[in-house]
Amino acid sequence: MSEEKEKPEAARERIRQEELKKEPSGSIHGGGLPDLVGNLGWKGTGIIILVLIAGFIIYAVFFR
């Protein structure tokens, strides 16, 4: 597949894999937020943000 037709997600993943090959010590503690967001997409990321906000509100109402 040529790079002009490559999807942005695939290009990001290819670049990330190349960087990991160059510096494997960067992946000791997992991928972190960029990998999480990249794998979930915008809908999954939005759901996680909503769950975190709802959890914070519930905690603030019931446990303070």
Rank of each mutant, 00 (worst) to 15 (best):
F62E: 04
G30F: 03
I49Q: 10
I49L: 15
Q17T: 12
F63Q: 12
D35K: 04
E19P: 00
K43W: 01
V51M: 13
I53C: 10
I57H: 04
G46Y: 02
P8Q: 07
N39L: 02
L50K: 06
G41A: 13
K21W: 09
S27I: 07
E6R: 14
G26M: 05
D35L: 07
R64F: 01
G41V: 07
A10D: 15
S2N: 15
N39E: 04
F56G: 08
G30E: 10
P34D: 09
V37C: 02
S27D: 14
H29P: 06
G46V: 10
I15R: 06
R16T: 06
I48R: 11
I47W: 02
A10F: 08
I53K: 07
K7M: 11
V51R: 00
S2H: 09
G38T: 01
I15G: 01
R64A: 08
E23V: 09
I28S: 00
K22C: 02
K7T: 13
G46A: 15
W42E: 00
E3S: 14
G44S: 08
S25I: 01
E13Q: 15
E13T: 08
S27N: 15
A11Y: 12
G31V: 02
G31L: 03
S27P: 02
P34K: 02
M1L: 04
K21M: 13
